[in-house]
């Protein structure tokens, strides 16, 4: 469980995060939802320690992360896997070397053979067993995201952070990526935090959703509660999605579109 309490962050006088407190639950997909520029990426970077918040504290399973000694921070960092918005693969290395890299750096006690097996396993897990020898420039955006996931889970992380895992992907691929993250989270009991502004992901995998608006947390709950939320900003956000609007229209016309929509999502994503 990751606890974030009262995080504030400003850039050159403009406050981007205005005191955010929330909890990310273990073994679940926690979604950070919000419009563009609301500070989702900044919050994520504060949590993983790429940025220092001006105020507030972050606790990983009881260990305070902010302002603690470098050794403790290092210890926690080694348990963090992260998928970046642009994948951030090392472009001088092949796909397999990318996945192997954290193992090489963080677990020198592993033998070459063990490492090779782990790389194979992780690539297979994301469905890329044949792409190991390719360079990042030679694979598609969706494949890059999957390599990013494989690299993040290679050292058996306890916390997985994904910044917009499905931005720039077609709906089918993005559902596949969502499902992959969801499966991995449950398989290994990882605490997963996903930044998104995609309502599809919310309906698909949102087990715990935190809605941010202009640097503040306005709402949190599950995907079943979100459609009935009474926060005007959240309503605006949800119903700006034409898919949801369409479902709502059917709902009004036929009494059951919205319900079918929610059911569909529960049975594994029939959108």
């Amino acid at each position: 469980m990751i606890e974030v309490s009262n995080i504030e962050k400003s850039f050159n006088g403009t406050q981007v995060l205005k005191g955010i407190s929330c909890v990310f639950e273990t073994g679940k997909c926690n979604l950070l939802l919000g419009g563009s520029g609301t500070g989702k990426s900044v919050l994520l970077q504060c949590i993983v320690g790429l940025m220092k918040p001006d105020m507030g504290s972050i606790t990983f399973d009881g260990t305070v992360y902010t302002n603690s000694k470098i050794d403790i921070r290092q210890e926690i960092r080694r348990k963090i896997g992260m998928l970046f918005q642009g994948s951030a693969l090392f472009d001088s290395m092949t796909v397999a070397q990318n996945v192997e890299f954290p193992l090489q750096m963080l677990t020198p006690e592993m033998s070459v053979e063990e490492r090779r097996e782990r790389v194979e396993f992780c690539l297979k897990r994301v469905g890329l067993e044949n792409a190991g020898k390719k360079m990042p420039a030679e694979i598609s955006g969706g494949m890059k995201k999957r390599v990013g996931i494989a690299r993040a889970i290679a050292p058996q992380c306890t916390y997985l952070f994904c910044d917009e895992p499905n931005s720039g992907l077609d709906p089918l691929t993005s559902i596949k990526i969502d499902e992959l993250i969801h499966e991995i989270t449950h398989e290994y009991g990882i605490t997963t935090v996903i930044v998104t502004h995609d309502m599809n992901s919310v309906i698909e995998i949102g087990e715990h959703i935190i809605f941010l608006h202009q640097g503040k947390k306005l709402w949190d709950g599950t995907k079943d509660e979100i459609l009935n939320a009474e926060v005007p900003e959240l309503k605006d956000f949800i119903f700006s999605s034409s898919l949801v609007r369409a479902a709502k229209r059917i709902d009004e016309e036929t009494e059951g579109g919205m319900a079918a929509f929610a059911e569909g999502s529960e049975s594994g994503g029939g959108i």
Binding site: R77, L89, F90
Partner: peptide, 17 residues
């Protein structure tokens, strides 16, 4: 510079390197 803007440096940092 390329590693910085494509977040490869951040990726290293997150790994604790």
């Amino acid at each position: 510079g390329t590693m910085r803007i494509t977040e490869q440096i951040s990726a290293l940092e997150v790994m604790g390197i």
